[in-house]
Simulated assay, not measured.
Amino acid sequence: MKFMASNGARVAALLAGVAVVSSCGLPRSGPTKSEIFAGSVMRQGDAFIVSVNPRVTRATAVTPALGFSSAFRNAGVIGSDIIRPGDSLGLTIYENVEDGLLAKGGLSQLDEVQVDGAGFIFVPYAGRIRAAGNTPEALRGVITRKLDTQTPDPQVIVRRLAGNGATISIVGGVGGQGVYPIERPTRTLLSMLAQAGGISSDPEVTRVTLIRGSRRETVWLSDLYTNPALDIALRANDRIIVDEDTRAFTALGATGTQSRLNFPTPNISALEAIAQVGGLSSSLADPTGVFVFRNEPAEIANNVLGRTDLQGTQRFVYVLDLTEPNGMFEARDFAIRDGDTVYVTEAPFVQWNKTISSLTGTLNQANNLAGIAQ
């Protein structure tokens, strides 16, 4: 019996030793705080580790400033149904005499009058007239005045036979993509978006980009709703692109879930980012170890550290301690940027509990083996 008990004790000791050794490699959600701090440039790594405070928050608060320039905002609305080069017009001219200047009977029709590349048309006895930039009604007045000096009381009708006049194109997250004419009810951006069926993407993160010639400018849809000055007048050949914000951040560690998430609003704080993934895990998270990993451009890096010698992109790890008196406020004010990684470390006792659980399970197995041996 002593021999069997001795064997059982040896098995228990052996298994306990294995458990102690294996506890060094127990599963966990990521690095510990000490391992992250070991990556500092002050130790053996190449990352700057910075505690978040109001000065750091201000230095890193770089968010996309979207909006239209004064050149776009100050452009006045254009008249509806503007004639463009390449349009085909139909002209009907009534003269108040039987033996008219243009035709006998006083009625003459000029079909398929082409607006040339320079924007002009030719009308007999009226000469070369600029049509582009005018509405059909304005052009009618011009032709009438030209003929009035040669035939009494002429009456002119101008019709567009072919051509789109002033048009814009809309693509992306709208109800109906396509080419739309600029008409009296749709001479501004919001009215044209409504004409295209409205917005089909999430309004909170929708951007509206307007391309005019070589210029490309973008505005948040929500700003269009709240700021009437951004509801700019459209111009012929404008291109409108409606798309959702593609910025995203990654959440890892002791949070409610670990995933990559798109920005739910134009701006998001560290506190909101944590809330997006279900908050801190109440059974795992260490509220003193919330980290934001980011690559900072040299300009911001020098500003944060109060230096001028850094060049190129720098690795930064920002530290948030939610247990400090102003910790929650700092997390609320610290802005998350595109590509950030938000990581929450596990509380120290979590690894301890895992070790104890591992040892307890191993000891139970040892006792079972000892019982079998006896």
Rank of each mutant, 00 (worst) to 15 (best):
G79E: 07
S80G: 14
S80E: 10
D81K: 04
D81S: 07
I82Q: 13
I82N: 03
I83N: 00
R84W: 04
P85Y: 06
D87G: 01
S88E: 10
S88L: 10
G90T: 05
G90D: 02
G90H: 00
I93Y: 01
Y94C: 09
E95F: 01
E95R: 00
E95P: 02
V97I: 15
D99N: 14
D99Q: 10
G100W: 04
L101K: 08
A103F: 05
A103V: 02
G106L: 10
G106K: 13
L107R: 09
L107K: 08
L107E: 10
L107D: 09
S108R: 06
S108E: 15
Q109K: 11
D111S: 14
E112S: 15
V115M: 05
V115T: 12
A118P: 08
A118I: 08
G119A: 03
G119V: 07
F120Q: 12
F120A: 14
V123Y: 09
P124Y: 12
G127C: 01
I129G: 05
P136Y: 00
A138W: 11
R140G: 11
R140V: 12
G141R: 12
G141H: 10
G141M: 11
V142I: 11
V142Y: 07
I143Q: 12
I143L: 03
T144Q: 13
T144C: 14
T144K: 15
K146R: 13
L147S: 06
D148A: 13
D148Q: 10
T149C: 04
T149G: 07
P152M: 04
Q155D: 11
V156N: 03
V156S: 04
V158M: 10
R159W: 02
R159N: 09
A162E: 12
G163L: 00
I168Q: 04
I168S: 00
V171S: 13
G172H: 02
G172V: 06
G175V: 08
G175A: 00
Q177A: 15
G178L: 00
Y180W: 07
P181K: 07
P181W: 00
P181M: 09
P185M: 08
P185R: 13
P185T: 06
T186N: 10
T188W: 05
L189C: 09
L189I: 14
M192C: 10
G198A: 04
I199T: 02
